[in-house]
Amino acid sequence: MEGGTPTGALGRMKAAWERARQRWWVRWGVDLAVLVLIVAAVGAWQARRLPGGGAPAPGFTLRTLGGEPVQLEALRGKPVVLAFWAPWCGVCKVESSNLSQLRRLAGDSAHVVSVAVAYDDEEDVRRFVQEHDVDFPVLLGDDAVQRAFRVDTFPTVFFLSPEGRIERAVVGYTTLAGLGWRLML
Score class of each variant (00 low, 15 high):
15 A>H: 09
13 M>E: 07
47 A>S: 15
41 A>N: 08
93 K>W: 03
116 A>T: 10
111 H>N: 14
64 T>R: 08
38 I>C: 13
108 D>Q: 11
54 G>E: 03
87 P>N: 06
52 G>W: 05
81 V>P: 02
25 W>M: 09
46 Q>L: 12
107 G>F: 11
32 L>P: 00
49 R>W: 08
15 A>R: 11
67 G>Q: 07
93 K>T: 15
37 L>T: 14
36 V>Y: 11
39 V>I: 08
76 R>Y: 11
60 F>E: 00
110 A>I: 10
68 E>T: 09
86 A>Q: 01
9 A>L: 08
104 R>T: 06
23 R>L: 09
103 R>A: 12
7 T>N: 14
98 N>Y: 01
89 C>V: 08
33 A>K: 02
61 T>I: 05
91 V>C: 00
91 V>M: 01
27 R>M: 12
45 W>T: 13
12 R>I: 03
71 Q>F: 01
75 L>C: 14
26 V>G: 04
17 W>E: 06
80 V>A: 10
64 T>V: 07
16 A>V: 05
103 R>F: 00
66 G>A: 14
70 V>L: 15
94 V>G: 02
68 E>W: 02
101 Q>K: 14
59 G>E: 11
10 L>F: 12
76 R>A: 13
45 W>Y: 14
112 V>T: 10
41 A>S: 13
21 R>M: 15
20 A>G: 02
34 V>M: 09
90 G>P: 00
67 G>T: 02
41 A>M: 11
56 P>F: 12
84 F>V: 12
116 A>F: 01
106 A>M: 11
15 A>Y: 08
111 H>E: 11
75 L>H: 06
22 Q>A: 15
58 P>R: 09
92 C>P: 04
11 G>C: 10
91 V>H: 09
115 V>W: 01
75 L>R: 04
64 T>C: 07
70 V>I: 12
34 V>Y: 09
117 V>C: 10
107 G>K: 00
117 V>R: 05
84 F>M: 04
84 F>L: 03
79 P>Y: 14
57 A>I: 14
98 N>Q: 12
58 P>G: 08
37 L>Y: 03
45 W>P: 07
17 W>M: 04
113 V>I: 15
89 C>K: 05
75 L>N: 10
35 L>S: 13
37 L>P: 04
93 K>V: 15
32 L>H: 09
12 R>M: 06
115 V>A: 02
97 S>C: 00
6 P>A: 14
26 V>S: 02
12 R>K: 14
80 V>L: 07
96 S>C: 04
74 A>I: 06
52 G>S: 06
83 A>L: 05
11 G>S: 09
112 V>G: 14
